[in-house]
Design a protein around this nucleic acid. Structure first.
Length: 205
DNA sequence: TGCCAGGCCCTCTTTAGGGCCTT
């Protein structure tokens, strides 16, 4: 058992920064309980602006598709209900956190949950990986994939598989019965050099 | 006015610069 539940999420957006006016165009999320995905959420959302040709090509999400999508406010209300009070996980979480907070603020909601970042964790736990992009890690760890990248639900599912793999490896390699979310957060924040010593002490209890 | 991401992490470091990662 993973001993706690998390919601793993991923946004597709019009660009890199909500502070520069960028908006979310799709949200995908999965509920992970123990080491299994038990629920899924996905929706396009109309950002009220046109997306660039680059984004259309990068994500496969076109202006045509977004024209008939429900407004972002409606989708974010539904997403907030799906996420509930579960802890949140994302790959390069600082990116998704900024968009989540920005979109929630537009509907007068405030995030209450903590975030953990699968990329920061991977940099500490998969030191031999050739890279820590989601795509590189999926190949490196031979994770389950639909073959689709840069769509919100597919990326959220792959991130969830990566998260579960890291939790399970920690338990196996360090003789841990449980790996709480808070421990994942602590590992994420340990300096990279300090990780071996941190894990050694962890295994000793 | 004109510009515009932001944070982590390494190193030829800390009075800095550049690559990685997200779209």
């Amino acid at each position: 058992m993973g001993n706690f539940s998390v919601v793993v999420l991923d946004f597709e957006t019009t660009g890199l920064s909500p502070d520069c006016g960028d908006r979310a165009i799709e949200v995908g999320a999965v509920l992970v309980q123990g080491n299994r995905i038990t629920d899924r959420f996905q929706s396009l959302m109309n950002p009220g602006m046109r997306v660039s040709g680059f984004i259309e090509q990068y994500t496969g999400i076109t202006n045509e598709m977004l024209r008939s999508a429900p407004p972002a406010a409606e989708v974010m209300q539904r997403f907030a209900a799906f996420a509930g009070r579960h802890h949140l996980v994302a790959h390069n979480a600082s990116f998704d956190r900024r968009f989540l907070d920005s979109e929630l603020k537009r509907i007068s909601l405030t995030r209450q949950q903590e975030f953990a970042c699968s990329m920061l964790l991977s940099r500490r736990l998969n030191c031999d990986a050739p890279g820590h992009s989601l795509e590189a890690l999926v190949r490196y760890k031979k994770l389950t994939t639909s073959g689709v990248f840069h769509r919100a639900l597919a990326d959220a599912e792959m991130t969830a598989h990566l998260w579960v793999a890291m939790v399970e490896e920690l338990k196996r390699e360090h003789q841990l019965r449980v790996v709480p979310f808070e421990l994942m957060q602590r590992i994420m924040k340990v300096s990279k050099k300090g990780v071996p010593e941190f894990l050694r002490r962890l295994a000793q209890g």
